[in-house]
């Protein structure tokens, strides 16, 4: 029975080891900020941090995440990346990035991971880090602007 470290808390789950982390987060633990959209790692709506790296929870079996630090949108504001997360969330609100909002937790998790590693990303860096996150509403102009703005506020 794997024990998962989610948002700083050890949680024992009784799902089969090959169960995708996404469904344990959403259906078992009701951490519904992490979204299901494609189930194949194609869209990024399910992005969480595992040991600080952005991963697609829909294709990550819980067995692969056991023993690692899992952070979701609910916990990122109090995680090791809290300072960056708060700046990113603030920029997202200030620029009113969201439209339907469904993909945005995943976008934010990817953006936080990017800025944790690279505090002054160029447009090309943003393209590389964010191209895995789809937004059907097409909020990309503002996602880019918000990442630059968050970077500025952290400088």
């Amino acid at each position: 029975m794997p024990t998962l470290d989610i948002n700083g808390k050890p949680i024992r789950v009784d799902e089969a080891p090959d169960t995708p982390l996404l469904w344990v987060l959403r259906d078992t633990l009701r951490l519904t900020g992490t979204k299901y959209s494609c189930g194949m790692g194609l869209c990024g709506a399910c992005t969480v941090h595992v040991d600080g790296q952005p991963v697609r929870s829909c294709i990550t079996p819980i067995a692969a995440a056991a023993g690692k630090k899992i952070v979701t949108i609910e916990g990122v504001g109090e995680s090791r990346a809290a300072r960056v997360a708060q700046a990113v969330e603030e920029a997202w609100r200030r620029l009113d990035v969201v439209q339907c909002g469904y993909c945005q937790p995943g976008q934010i998790m990817s953006a936080v991971a990017l800025l944790e590693e690279n505090p002054r990303p160029t447009d090309a860096d943003i393209d590389a880090a964010m191209a895995g996150n789809l937004c059907r509403c097409g909020t990309y102009v503002r996602i880019r602007a918000a990442i630059h703005e968050a970077a500025k506020s952290l400088a």
Binding site: G77, R93, P105
Partner: peptide, 21 residues
């Protein structure tokens, strides 16, 4: 004026049908 739904959509607390339990 800022969007009324920004804060909860940024935090991941906005409830979509998919999130109903």
């Amino acid at each position: 004026v800022p969007r009324k739904d920004s804060a909860e959509k940024v935090k991941g607390t906005a409830i979509f049908t998919q999130d109903v339990h």
